[in-house]
Amino acid sequence: MTDLIQMIVSGIATGSSYALMGLAMVIIYKTSEVPNFAQGEMALISSFFAMMLLTSFNLNVYLAFSLAFLFAAVLGCFLEFAVLRRAKEPNVLGMIVITIGIEMVILGVVSWKFGAEQKTMPFPIDPYDSLFIGDIFLKKLDILTLVSALGLMVVLFMFFRFSKLGLAMKATQQNSVAARIVGVRTNRILMVTWGISSLVGAVAGLLISPTIMHPYMMWDPMLKGFAAAVMGGMTSLPGAVVAAYMLGIIENLFGGYISIEFKTVVAFVIIVAVLCFKPSGLFARHYVKKV
């Protein structure tokens, strides 16, 4: 019994980092209908930037992290402005390929600058520092990740539901011509979206970096986050988070009871199953066109 609970708890912990990446992807998808495959690497370079500030410049942890978040936001805005906006007559497929290109460039830059070996991130919380509740142990870092994921979900949900900018973002996604004719600067909206999304991704990156830190560290969380976003319906923030936790838990249980080798594959089996039975995702609320 303790084993089962322990596995579920660890599943929730891994689910949290998937959730953060899922949120980041949903935000961009919500405004531009482009799944951003560079999401993981944008988070990667932000985490390495934070590490650089901490180790080479000996900055205070909080200052370094704030600068890393700022860096992430600026990076997101910059990529939208300098790369995606330049695409002539863009279509979704072309945009996806561009994001994959960005991903490879960033990956290359990070490997070249910092090397491919495992680094250590001087994080204020030791990644193996745990609490015990009965027989169950909880890593303090995991608790922090869980709180950040849920907190960011609530903040972003409120933002899209109640703020004027959030409304303009939704409007831009649904009909960008109509958004322009009510006076929305749609280009700027997209840029801000990329900034916010990159920032959320950077939170995930920084919370993953104490445990693993090398150029491929974001691969798994990014793909799983994407999987969660698809399962949640791609436009639903709570959907992505719930799906991310489901993925984390199922994956862990599968790894514990059935096969540790196929642990990471199970996520994609679940996606296929979900897309077969509910193609619009588990939580998407979509207007279905009447014939």
């Binding site: 409304l167 303009a168 939704k170 649904q174 958004a179 009510v182 006076g183 929305v184």
Partner: peptide, 29 residues
């Protein structure tokens, strides 16, 4: 638009998944 010209395009161009109230708010963006 900010100079005070409003435009109702051919074929309406509404936001399908925004409510009527949200549309009017967007109009006053």
């Amino acid at each position: 638009v900010r100079k005070g010209i409003a435009y109702v395009p051919e074929g309406r161009e509404i936001f399908k998944e925004l409510t009527v109230h949200e549309h009017l708010l967007m109009g006053a963006y």
